[in-house]
């Protein structure tokens, strides 16, 4: 039971880290950014590639992975997302999906389609209440909570953060103050993308790295965003852990149903919550 809870918190933490960016682009532009899945996957693959460079040393490889998606995110933002402003939302969704397709194919081209395992970088376990828990998972939980705290401070205390929050709440009012929101949303986009890559990096040792890993995760992130409320940072945090728990508890009883259960929860939320999206 302890290990189920710990696992739920671990994947909840990872869902949170990945969903931030999705929630922010959802909140700011009302589009679902499929390319987010690409960044997430790129993070995991670059980790794998640079691990061999650093002879299996995890931390520098992780840093390289997170940093090197920034230019990728910038290119996607600049040449696809930004050009889609004013186009219909549907076309924007399709375009980001197209970017994901291209990215997946390039990944297959470079690394092939076979799943790649990444080993646990810590490898130790800690006894908690008589159950051995991998230290690595505990670290993930701590990291995700740290990120939450940092983001809370960023959005509530810094000028840039406050502007972004204002822009998310009322785009027109904020632009009418003479603020160029596009610039700030670019920052948001890159921030969200780096976090997605971090999510890919952290998740890689727990699952396997493969070209379609992004497809799966984006759906779960989407469920997190819906359950947590569009553009709501705190909601995303709570929803991510809640759905992580749903997944791990379901998985304990019937592995294959874990993911379906997440969507069932989302459907229930959609039924009872009036959505204006």
């Amino acid at each position: 039971m302890i290990s189920t809870i710990a696992y739920g918190l671990t994947i909840g933490g990872i869902f949170y880290i990945i969903s931030i960016g999705l929630s922010l682009t959802f909140g700011s532009m009302r589009i679902v950014n499929f390319a987010h899945a690409l960044i997430y996957m790129a993070g995991a693959y670059i980790l794998f590639a640079s691990m061999s460079l650093f002879k299996g040393w995890f931390i520098p490889a992780a840093i390289i992975a997170v940093v090197s998606v920034i230019p990728l995110a910038y290119v996607i933002e600049r040449f696809v997302i930004r050009r889609l402003y004013g186009e219909s939302i549907d076309l924007a969704i399709i375009a980001t999906y197209a970017v994901l397709l291209i990215g997946v194919d390039i990944t297959k081209w470079i690394w092939g389609a076979t799943p790649i395992p990444v080993s646990d970088p810590v490898g130790k376990s800690l006894p908690v209440l008589g159950v051995d828990l991998p230290v690595y998972r505990l670290i993930i939980i701590v990291v995700s909570i740290l990120i939450f705290i940092c983001l809370e401070i960023f959005f509530r205390k810094t000028i840039v953060g406050k502007i972004i929050v204002a822009g998310l709440e009322d785009r027109e009012a904020t632009t009418s103050l003479g603020i160029n929101l596009d610039k700030y949303f670019s920052i948001v986009f890159i921030l969200g993308s780096s976090l997605a890559a971090l999510g890919g990096v952290l998740y890689a040792p727990i699952t396997t790295v493969h070209p379609y890993m992004g497809f799966q995760v984006i759906l779960i992130s989407f469920a997190v965003v819906i359950v947590g409320g569009l553009g709501s940072m705190r909601g995303t945090f709570v929803a991510a852990f809640a759905l992580g728990m749903v997944m791990s508890v379901t998985g304990r009883f019937w592995g294959p149903a874990a993911e379906a259960m997440v969507f069932a929860v989302m459907a229930v939320v959609l039924i009872f919550k009036p959505v204006e999206v």
């Binding site: 759906l219 989407f222 819906i226 459907a267 959609l270």
Partner: peptide
Amino acid sequence: VRTTGACFALINLAFNQVGFFLALTA
């Protein structure tokens, strides 16, 4: 049908995923 835009797109996708799971496993 209560949803539009991105939500409509993805909620269909989510149900599709559940259906896939039902056919494949459940």
